[in-house]
Design a protein around this nucleic acid. Structure first.
Lengths: 191, 191
DNA sequence: ACACTAAGTAATCAGTTGATAACTTAATGA
DNA sequence: TCATTAAGTTATCAACTGATTACTTAGTGT
């Protein structure tokens, strides 16, 4: 009972725990408001461990974000389901959406904003643009990311969603259709 | 030359200067990263002045945001121009867009996020919903705000816009058309 | 002319932040 | 078995945060 539990040492496990705690904290509280000690405590270690394994707070943020943000999971389903798929992921309260949340909550801090912008560009915008295809893949990728970020921001972070289930369902349906229209849009039929 | 310029006293002017400096700083750096002293220095006063006139930092933020955020200016033009009008305001680099920027940069901080959410609801969503009209004004207002926030977030804060002028013009046109479709959409023709 | 009020400043407090140095101790290999 | 390496902790630093107190002085009404 009084044994202080000698604390097994396990570097990779500790490192992983810190990373997971950081991702969760950055996604819930944002970069600026999340303290080094808070992350360390959540990971069950002390704060210097965090510097040992990840250097600075910003560099921890960078790796935490890079590991979390990814879009490729949406490319497996049939192309005509993309809109509905994205809508269901963003709407589902159980999908924790670490990536978009971390990016959205990071823009209030200069360093974090730059890191987040770069990660979003490399890990989301560019793969999405390539998946959509030339000649206007970049435009359409921006439009989709813009809608996704707007939805996450306004529905999860702020939150501004109307109260009724009916409203939410309608908004979700509109979101899916609008995104799908971007996916289906051909560069030929421009005005 | 060596005269220290006796410093005229002018309460309302000082208060206005603090408010203007706060709006600018909150819109550029965000709530969390903007310090009391920074705002005071920008306003040409010392930090206690800020507490004298506005109480706490959060309360200063609240007044600064409430004075800045407004949507009614877009209601004067003809209804069929709303999409294009909103797009032009959001796109124009010269329109400083204090309101949306302050809201976007505030979500990383708990207190500021709550204040911003309330302000957005009262000063943007509700007037817009009323302007759009029943029965689904709330839904459509959310959709428009969502798109606006997404655009500001991705184009101004991050920034993720493609490089070419051609791309930007196309995105802006798509944005205007999509928003206009929400405005024009009648509740009758729902699936 | 003078006293009162309020605008403004200097100095400082207590708490928190990210980061480090110095120390302890568990694990590993020769 | 024992010395070396690395995992982990304690204590602490310097800087900065929002906020407050006590003081100075300009403006104003009588």
């Amino acid at each position: 009972m009084t044994s202080p539990t000698p604390k097994r040492r396990n570097a990779p496990r500790t490192k992983a725990q810190i990373l997971a705690a950081a991702q969760q904290a950055f996604a819930e509280e944002g970069y600026a408001q999340t303290g080094i000690r808070e992350i360390a405590a959540q990971a069950g270690v002390t704060s210097p461990m965090l510097h040992r394994y990840f250097g600075t707070k910003a560099s921890l943020f960078e790796t935490a974000l890079a590991e979390t943000i990814h879009i490729e999971g949406l490319f497996d389903a049939p192309r005509h389901d993309f809109g509905e798929l994205l809508a269901s992921v963003l709407r589902d309260p159980d999908s924790n959406l670490l990536g978009p949340s971390i990016v959205a909550l990071a823009i209030g801090h200069t360093d974090a904003r730059d890191i987040a912008a770069h990660a979003a560009k490399v890990h989301v915008l560019e793969p999405l643009a390539e998946w959509l295809g030339p000649p206007d893949g970049a435009e359409r990728a921006f439009e989709i990311v813009m809608m996704g970020m707007g939805f996450v921001l306004c529905s999860r972070q702020l939150p501004l969603l109307p109260d009724g289930d009916r409203d939410v369902a309608n908004i979700s349906e509109w979101f899916a259709q609008t995104v799908q229209a971007i996916v289906d849009r051909s560069a030929a039929q421009k005005t």
